[in-house]
């Protein structure tokens, strides 16, 4: 009896119409888009994290969480519309290279410049020392892939 009751209730809950479409992207595209998500959805992300700092209860920040997810979905759609080729090249490169940014600087630069031209989003790494080139813009880094 218990198993039928169980499945009945789980199904009733989980198959209820979702209020927000989940992202569904895998780690590669997310890692590739991470800094743009941080730039584009800054306000929503901070709002959500402040809400989570208030209370850890999942029920407490559902609304803010939906906003975060919608904002990210919006950004990913825009990326696919504007920079689909560069985006795909970059995350495929990440997938092939253990998801290390330093192995994929060339596709990353193409994606960064495209994102800046089309959407005005700039990749910035917080905490980079003053007067130093951010690591993703260094021309001749020590750490590169063995195969160029």
């Amino acid at each position: 009896m218990s198993s039928t009751v169980q499945s009945q209730f789980v199904d009733a809950q989980t198959t209820a119409p979702p209020k927000v479409e989940e992202i569904g992207a895998t780690s590669g595209p997310l890692k590739s888009a991470a800094f743009f998500i941080g730039a584009y959805c800054k306000e929503y992300n901070e709002d959500f994290m402040l809400c989570k700092a208030e209370n850890r209860d999942p029920a407490h920040c559902l609304k803010e969480g939906r906003r975060v997810t919608r904002c990210t979905a919006d950004l990913l759609t825009k990326m696919r519309e504007n920079c689909a080729k560069q985006f795909e090249t970059h995350w495929n490169c990440l997938e092939r290279n253990n998801q290390e940014y330093y192995m994929c600087r060339k596709p990353e630069r193409a994606l960064n410049s495209c994102m800046f031209e089309k959407l005005g989003l700039l990749k910035t790494i917080p905490g980079t020392p003053e007067g130093q080139k951010p690591i993703h813009e260094v021309e001749n880094p020590v750490y590169t892939g063995v195969q160029k």
């Binding site: 991470a34 800094f35 959805c41 992300n45 969480g65």
Partner: peptide, 15 residues
């Protein structure tokens, strides 16, 4: 930082 930027998204989905 790439992970920090993804935390809210993943946390929201998990929540």
């Amino acid at each position: 930082w790439s992970r920090i930027h993804l935390v809210p998204l993943l946390l929201a989905e998990g929540d």
